[in-house]
Design a binder for these strands. Structure first.
Length: 481
RNA sequence: GGCGCUAUCGUCUAGGGGUUAGGACGUCAGAUUCUCAAUCUGAAAACCCGGGUUCGAUUCCCGGUAGCGCUACCA
């Protein structure tokens, strides 16, 4: 079990999306679990759609997720010669043949056959007399290379997650291995690479389940040993359609930008189609590696639920040590364009982050709901105003509270609380009214940490100033029509 | 259309011939009263349908239905 070799083989035609990330993760988990090798291979044989900068982005996403590879990245575009050699070898051995039909001719035949059955390549060139074949080759006629699929029999295999799969060979057509421009197709390049890279377990999306028999035929023609196949159920959007851009954020980078932690995304993705024997939901990377098992992977497609991801993220966020969290918060503030003018010392920053940490769900929350903790430039959330700034006596009360706090001998959470409660008594209102109103004044939010801790953190001057600002704002608002 | 695969709460799932069908997210209610996206407690919520096998089927078999995938000189 120690010499397993697996690969993740994205094509750089888009960013790394969560489905691809999960495929990569399962390959990585399997490799680490078995002490094997995890190989990264870039499938960039489609020159038109592949973009080098996307390869870079995919690599970055994998690194961010912590899915380190042991070999590669190999680029298929560097290996075109091997694919051509393999195609030539297959032709020589009679397993493939040159096809001189043009794509246009094929398309036309396909369109004409529209009626009942699906159109399969009709074998025009498969049955070409040898002499004519030689002739056309000598003329240098452009041609593709097609695989000669056996006309009878069945191809079957045992998939690690789906079990026995079988298909009649007559359902398969003579698929193209090499395009007329000399570029390999997917089937040729994967099999060629998987054979040459001595891949032992092919772990990939279930969208390839139906392609597998074709590839098995190729392995056989090549006389190569079959790897174990393990297909993974697909990840769907809320409408049960295959997850795509239409569903909003689907790329790993988009979740990073939303303030999701890589370990949370990894944990969430791991559970989309797999459950450890004990059923735990929050799993350390080590626990995942230790328990991962392909045969426990689910067979049915899974809907991606961003709500559960958010919950999982909050779990990881809260468990994070301040040493790790503070730099992440700093980076978030920076990318949000907030230079923390309010906070002068690192000690203060740690205190602030620690206070906020228990109720933040993502890193983004620090720069959004938590904005007022880092800068004076913040706004009052509309629903906070609606909820806690209804009472008409508030402008006066907040202003009085500011006075009282300003005159305190020494400013602390306890003193501030005492002062506020006294004022509430004197004014004959509930302390809660004042506390909630003051919270909005100080943080702009209806949800925030305990008020007096917030006051203590902000300090007397800033607390007083914000209370006054709110009082004026409310006064003006009341005066307005 | 053909072929393949799949089917347990809204979602992710556990389970498995006899169970009060378990957990998690979300939802709802209560508690906390200084808010809540925090915390605690509780609740509602599922075996796709029809046949068969069986003393008994959600579980096994067959069929249907639905969903997804493949059906390219994309990967």
């Amino acid at each position: 079990m120690g010499d397993t070799r697996v690969r993740f083989a994205p094509s750089p035609t888009g960013y790394l999306h969560v489905g691809g990330a999960r495929t990569a993760l399962y390959n990585w988990l399997f490799a680490r679990h078995t002490g094997g090798v995890f190989i990264l291979r870039i499938e960039d044989t489609d020159a038109d759609r592949s973009k080098p900068e996307l390869t870079t982005a995919i690599l970055e996403s994998l690194e961010w997720l912590g899915l380190n590879w042991d070999e590669g990245p190999f680029h298929q575009s560097d290996r075109l010669d091997q694919y051509r050699a393999m195609a030539a070898e297959l032709v020589r051995a009679g397993h493939a043949y040159p096809c001189f039909c043009t794509p246009e001719e094929i398309q036309e035949k396909r369109a004409r056959a529209s009626g009942g059955r699906p159109w399969k390549y009709d074998g025009t060139c498969r049955n070409l007399p040898e002499a004519e074949r030689q002739n056309r080759m000598a003329e240098g006629s452009p041609h593709a290379v097609r695989f000669r699929v056996p006309e009878a029999g069945v191809t079957d295999f045992k998939d690690e997650v789906f079990g026995q799969i079988r298909i009649e060979n007559q359902e398969l057509e003579d698929f193209v291995l090499l395009r007329s421009d000399g570029q390999p197709t997917y089937h040729l390049s994967v099999v060629c690479d998987d054979v040459e890279m001595r891949i032992t377990h092919v772990i990939r999306g279930a969208d390839h389940l139906s392609n597998t028999p074709k590839q098995i035929l190729l392995y056989r023609a090549l006389g190569a040993a079959l790897p174990v196949f393990a297909h993974l159920p697909l990840i769907l959007g809320p409408d049960k359609q295959r997850l795509s851009k239409r569903h909003g954020a689907t790329s790993v980078g988009a979740y990073r930008d939303q303030g999701i932690l890589p370990e949370a995304l990894v944990n969430f993705l791991a559970l989309l189609g797999w459950t450890p024997p004990g059923g735990e939901e929050i799993l350390s990377r080590e626990a995942m590696v230790r328990q991962f098992d392909l045969s426990a992977v689910s067979k049915s497609n899974a809907v991606f639920d961003p709500e559960k991801l958010a919950w999982m993220n909050s779990q990881y966020l809260r468990a994070l040590s301040l040493d790790r969290l503070v730099p992440l918060v700093e980076a978030e503030l920076k990318s949000a364009g907030i230079e923390s003018r309010i906070i002068s010392t690192t000690e203060k920053l740690r205190e602030t982050v620690a206070l906020l940490q228990p109720r933040m769900r993502t890193l983004k929350d620090f720069s959004q709901g938590g904005r007022a903790f880092f800068t004076d430039d913040f706004e009052y959330a509309e629903e906070a105003e609606r909820k806690f700034w209804k009472d008409p006596s508030l402008p006066g009360l907040l202003s009085k509270l500011a006075e009282k706090l300003d005159k305190l001998d020494c400013f602390s959470a306890e003193k501030a609380e005492a002062a506020l409660r006294t004022l509430a008594d004197e004014a004959g209102v509930k302390a809660g009214l004042l506390i909630n109103a003051a919270r909005v004044a100080l943080t702009g939010q209806a949800v925030a940490p305990g008020l007096f801790e917030v006051m203590n953190l902000l300090g007397r001057e800033r607390t007083v100033e914000r209370l006054r600002r709110a009082s004026h704002y409310l006064g003006r608002r009341a005066a307005a029509p």
